[in-house]
């Protein structure tokens, strides 16, 4: 199943929220680490192995930071739709994301750059993005800038 819903700049309102749920599993993590090749045990470490996680003071294996970054990227590209484009993403990791965490993933519109559009520039929208786990903690938070298509530019 694909999601081809498209958002346009003119329809964006500051304050609107887009929410989805993601639950990274151990299988997802191993697939992620193996995108290009088998990463080997050294890389998998605390991302798949209980003992290795415990050595780092973790309760259980965690989702790699770059996978959390990828999941945030997905949140943003899902929000933007197929014709949208991420310009930049800036995120910080406040605490670990653990395997099987049920994450409420939120993208909140904070800025719509009408001045830039009027000046002939790209149609940019600013978002706050975050994950919230079942304990109400926000392990990952950040901001994104996205370029969206415009109705008047595509008609």
């Amino acid at each position: 199943m694909t999601n081809d819903y498209q958002r346009y700049f003119e329809e964006i309102e500051i304050g609107e929220e887009y929410i989805q749920t993601q639950q990274p599993t151990r299988e997802n993590v191993l697939e992620f680490l193996g995108t290009w090749s088998d990463p080997g045990d050294e890389v998998r470490g605390r991302f798949s192995d209980q003992a290795a996680a415990a050595r780092d003071g973790l309760q259980k294996p965690i989702v790699p930071g770059n996978m959390s970054a990828s999941m945030i990227t997905k949140l943003v590209t899902d929000w933007a739709g197929p014709l949208g484009r991420i310009v930049s993403l800036d995120i910080s990791f406040r605490r670990p994301v653990q395997h099987e965490d049920i994450l409420k993933c939120v993208a909140l519109v904070t800025e719509r750059d009408d001045d830039l559009v009027e000046a002939g520039g790209p149609a940019l929208v600013g978002l706050d993005v975050s994950f919230e786990n079942e304990q109400g903690e926000k392990p990952v938070q950040g901001t994104a800038t996205v370029e969206l298509p415009r109705h008047d530019a595509t008609d």
Partner: peptide, 17 residues
């Protein structure tokens, strides 16, 4: 590689899949 990555993060955006 694109397909593997999309599977890992359960990508559904048609421009990628």
């Amino acid at each position: 590689a694109i397909a593997k990555y999309c599977e890992a993060i359960e990508e559904t955006n048609p421009i990628f899949v």
